[in-house]
Design a protein around this nucleic acid. Structure first.
Length: 244
DNA sequence: ATAAATGTTAAGAA
DNA sequence: CTTCTTAACATTTA
């Protein structure tokens, strides 16, 4: 469940808890969860793949990593929550995630201009950051949370296929219009991802991720664990241009 | 049924 | 002081 748009959906699902006070705390996390007791949650926010609970004097961050999940007003019968927060008769349950306190104001803790789903998202800044890393491969660039907070491996494969850029293209070699397209497509795909995910049709719209053949040329996709990150790439050698 | 996957971080090595 | 490598975490699906 972990890419940026999924966290935005969680934030919206949790919005009805805003202003409520935490009355019960449980879970197998090793952080000092008792600190949360009697705290009013002022806001639920998200930055990239991180879900944030903002309280008067501190905040909490939940990162779902690869396997994390959550339940609202219900529990998994087969798993103990990492953290369970009771709000009177209602509750939020988080499983298999990483939780951590943040002791500085959230506006200072994160670079809000780097989050592709933030209203403050700044494509110019992203382009500058890409240009300052000319040797960086396209497959690593999209996964870089300092540049594209919220984008994950599905983004990488879908965005590069859509803009016809080979994953091993370097940022320095991309023509300016392509670089611009890459940056804009990351944001555009984020909102498509968000809509499709809400309608439970995300996978149906995958053009490259996990696919075996290229829907444009019908030749087999290439697969490989490319770049610094070694995450799996699905790409078409014929229609995705390698700029190097 | 064994492996691999929408991900990150900490620790140690080079 | 970087930069790289490895392991750890943990659940579901193919």
């Amino acid at each position: 469940m972990p890419e940026g748009p999924s966290i935005v959906i969680l934030k919206e699902e949790a919005a009805s808890f805003e202003g409520r006070t935490i009355t019960r705390v449980a879970g197998n996390t090793t952080i000092e969860k008792e600190k949360l007791l009697d705290q009013p949650v002022l806001a639920f926010r998200s930055w990239g793949k991180q879900f944030l609970l903002e309280m008067p004097d501190f905040s909490m961050r939940v990162h779902f990593m690869l396997f994390g999940s959550y339940r609202i007003d219900e529990r998994k019968s087969w798993a103990e929550p990492r953290l369970s927060l009771g709000f009177g008769e209602r509750e939020l349950n988080f499983y298999a995630c990483s939780v951590r306190f943040i002791d500085i104001p959230l506006d200072l803790a994160f670079d809000w201009w780097a989050d592709v789903m933030s209203p403050l998202w700044d494509p110019l800044l992203a382009r500058q950051r890409l240009r300052s890393a000319p040797d960086m491969h396209a497959c690593d660039a999209i996964l870089d949370q300092d540049i594209f907070a919220g984008c994950g491996n599905i983004f990488k494969n879908e965005v590069l296929f859509r803009i016809r850029v080979h994953p091993l293209s370097t940022m320095g070699a991309l023509p300016a219009p392509k670089l611009r397209e890459l940056v804009l497509e990351c944001q555009r795909y984020a909102y498509e991802f968000y809509e499709w995910k809400k309608q439970y049709v995300l996978k149906k719209h995958w053009l490259a991720h996990t696919k075996r053949t290229c829907p444009r040329c019908n030749i087999p996709f290439s697969k490989g664990h490319l770049g610094r990150t070694q995450r799996r790439s699905f790409y078409c050698e014929r229609c995705q241009v390698k700029y190097e």
